[in-house]
């Protein structure tokens, strides 16, 4: 299993879509604060207000860590686009045929892809946060506040949420071999359209008795509240969602023939 993960990691780091998406993500993260500031200045100028107070504002480190995963909806799409491309590559090119048959269970290939996704998501998140810090440092002073530790915890919950979304993508792309649907889902993740879907799911959940649960609150780019029940619900949601789709992906992949 470790060997398969090593193989998938090597393939991931050789994947051009991963490098391209990461580079764009990094640029967006770096530019987000200056762009945001430029818009604030413009808005202030248009309103005839003074802009001096916009400079030298302090920014809390915890706020950066808690801010949406990637600035702007386009930024949220990128890691998922990279994942869809990565999950699909070995199937599209037929490379999977070289190795799937030699394993005791074909589903192991799905399992190893899932594990290789952890560093993928971690890299995207770390690069996003680090470059966001760097971009902020050009214009603002970052202060290390008391809430950094809990913000870091939230950061890892976001990683968990992202990982659970990845299981949905691995199921759709690798197991069902629906690359287009995977790409659509990846795009929808960062689109306002998804709010409608989240709303529908929440309504359905309410009908089956799960009340006060809004799926949009537990997507990787959501701003999480830091209350304990909220955090617990987020962790549980990620684990249940991830486990269901991972188990489904492995089971179905094992049963389906490799083409």
């Amino acid at each position: 299993m470790l060997n398969l993960i090593k193989m998938d990691l090597y393939r991931l780091f050789k994947s051009k879509p991963f490098i391209i998406c990461l580079a764009i993500s990094a640029l967006l993260a770096l530019a987000s604060t200056p762009i945001e500031k430029a818009f604030s200045l413009l808005a202030a100028a248009l309103a005839g207000e003074g802009a001096a107070d916009l400079f030298d504002k302090q920014e809390k480190m915890s706020a950066i860590l808690l801010s949406p995963l990637f600035p702007g909806s386009f930024g949220a799409i990128l890691p998922f686009i990279s994942l869809v491309s990565y999950y699909n590559a070995d199937i599209e090119h037929g490379y999977i045929k070289n190795i799937a048959g030699q394993l005791p269970a074909r589903g192991l290939t799905v399992f190893s892809k899932f594990f290789a996704t952890i560093p993928h998501n971690l890299i995207f998140m770390c690069v996003g946060v680090l470059l966001n810090i760097l971009g902020t440092m050009f214009l603002r002073t970052i202060v290390w506040d008391a809430e950094v530790a809990s913000a870091l915890g939230t950061f890892f919950i976001k990683l968990l949420l992202m990982q659970s979304v990845a299981t949905l993508l691995v199921f759709v792309v690798s197991t069902l071999r629906l690359k287009s649907l995977g790409a659509i889902l990846a795009v929808l993740m960062g689109s306002p359209m998804m709010t409608i879907v989240y709303g529908l799911i929440s309504t359905l959940l309410e009908r089956v008795g799960i009340k006060n649960f809004s799926l949009s609150d537990y997507m990787p780019d959501a701003i999480l509240c830091e209350t304990q029940p909220e955090i617990l619900t987020a962790i549980l949601s990620a684990l249940i969602f991830g486990a269901i789709f991972l188990a489904l992906a492995i089971r179905v992949f094992d049963r389906r023939d490799v083409k």
């Binding site: 050789k14 090119h93 037929g94 490379y95 999977i96 045929k97 070289n98 048959g101 030699q102």
Partner: peptide
């Protein structure tokens, strides 16, 4: 069992 089915599966 080593296999080459239909065409070589390669990353171009």
């Amino acid at each position: 069992v080593g296999v080459l089915i239909e065409h070589p599966g390669l990353f171009p």
